[in-house]
């Protein structure tokens, strides 16, 4: 399963990559902001996108909307933090298929994503 991770924190990206790759996911790309994320989505056509909400240049919700325009079936999972309820609501209404709360651990991520593994 091909995954694209979009997060401005390298730390989170690396952590996610390590977690996912240990469980048979293929992280095909990483992006550090929304603009790059949309671009990479277009290029790589991943099965799944993990999307941080708070990012420079273009935030995760705007990027989610753009991705949904490109492909209404796109599966985008938001990475959010406690206290960001408002943004999470917004992203769900914009078509996010789920969200993972920071701080997350490997087990949680894999459990959450396993629902999409076909």
């Amino acid at each position: 399963m091909k995954v694209l991770t979009v997060d401005d924190a390298v730390f989170i990206r690396v952590t996610l990559r390590e977690m996912l790759e240990r469980h048979g996911y293929e992280v095909v790309g990483e992006a550090s902001n929304g603009i790059e994320g949309v671009k990479k989505y277009n290029e790589l056509k991943p099965d799944l996108v993990t999307m941080d909400i708070t990012m420079p240049e273009m935030d995760g919700i705007a990027a989610l909307r753009k991705i949904k325009q490109i492909n209404p079936q796109a599966k985008v999972i938001m990475i959010s933090a406690m206290g960001q309820e408002k943004s999470v609501k917004e992203s769900i209404l914009a078509g996010a298929c789920g969200f993972i709360l920071k701080p997350f651990n490997e087990e949680q991520v894999i459990r959450g994503l396993s629902k999409f593994k076909s």
């Binding site: 603009i35 420079p56 273009m58 919700i61 705007a62 408002k86 609501k89 917004e90 914009a94």
Partner: peptide, 23 residues
């Protein structure tokens, strides 16, 4: 969209235009 959602959605979009070049 929710009212609250549309409100804050305008914010980051503005910022995008300003800093696109430095990207």
């Amino acid at each position: 969209p929710l009212v609250t959602a549309s409100e804050s959605a305008g914010q980051p979009a503005d910022a995008t235009g300003d800093s696109e070049q430095s990207l």
